[in-house]
Simulated assay, not measured.
Amino acid sequence: MAHKVIYRLSGLVQGIILERVNRFTISAIIENVKTYAHLTNTGKLNDVLVYGRTSLFKRIKGRKLEFRLIGVEDHGFYNIVDTITQNKIFERLIEKRRINKLSGCIILKRNPRAGSEVFDYILGCGNEEILVETKSAVLRSNEAAMYPDCPSLRGRRQVSKLIELTKEGVRTLLVFISALPHVKCFKPYYDGDPILYELIGKAYLNGVDIMALSMYMDLNGYIYIDDICLPLCKDWIDNISSI
């Protein structure tokens, strides 16, 4: 399979993961020194933040931290665990018109509020607007990317709101960023959060547009896409269609 480069992150530094310190911090060996790095992904990440795993970091000008974790070695490439990078690539795909079903769209607003919930984007697509929420899917089961890997009250509220707005006639889009190499489809993960799993299925059945995007990176910071839009896994579609 040909790997298509969409972007490059420059100035990355290689390091070794030691452990997760708290929700937003990991410890690591970077440039032969034990230090701490910012973690933007609030998932459980038990299969990602593994002791001794080679990782890529970006220097930042934080008040307390000098680095941010970007990606972790995965099957010969690197996943993209950093949600800032994930959304940056999503925005680039929109700007470059690389997503066919969104090829006529532009970003109108970031972090829009709908009721009490904050989402990621409002896209303008001709005379129509789309409310968009992105979710990071870096949990792997064989060749499937999955979300969530732990309970998410915020995720439940957001998906519930998307269902409500869709019923009111608002066009909505839920994007799962499958930032892993060598995956062939996406599906929600029941054991991560059974309530959210059911809500995502309900969203699909009630007209919320659900899309999965594929991306990953290499040691030199090149970010690849093979098939931009991953299919939804057939076993999940068959399961919810029988409800």
Rank of each mutant, 00 (worst) to 15 (best):
D74H: 05
I225P: 00
H3P: 06
N22P: 04
I237R: 06
V72L: 00
N206L: 15
V13G: 00
D226T: 11
C185Q: 12
E129F: 10
V50N: 00
I99D: 09
Y78H: 06
R23Q: 09
I225Y: 02
G207S: 08
R20H: 10
D209I: 06
T172L: 05
V118R: 15
K161F: 09
L196Q: 14
F119E: 00
V33L: 07
V208E: 12
T166V: 07
I122Q: 01
L65D: 06
D47W: 06
N111W: 11
K34E: 10
E128G: 11
L12V: 03
R53Q: 03
K167L: 12
F67L: 05
L174G: 02
I29M: 09
K44M: 07
P231H: 13
S241D: 15
L45G: 01
T25R: 04
Y7E: 02
V138G: 04
G192C: 03
E143K: 13
T85K: 08
N220K: 03
D193L: 03
N46E: 05
D149E: 02
R154T: 06
N87R: 15
H75Q: 11
L196F: 04
N142E: 11
A144G: 10
L162H: 02
W236E: 08
F57L: 02
K44V: 12
H75P: 03
M215L: 15
V183F: 06
G201V: 08
A144I: 15
I225H: 04
V170K: 14
Y121T: 03
F119G: 00
V208K: 09
E95V: 11
A212D: 03
A114R: 02
E168H: 12
L196H: 12
Y7C: 12
H38C: 02
G192P: 03
V72I: 06
L9H: 00
G52M: 03
L173A: 09
I94V: 13
K61H: 09
R157T: 09
P231Y: 13
C233P: 02
L205G: 08
D82F: 07
P188Q: 04
P194R: 00
S242E: 15
K64P: 07
K88N: 12
A114N: 01
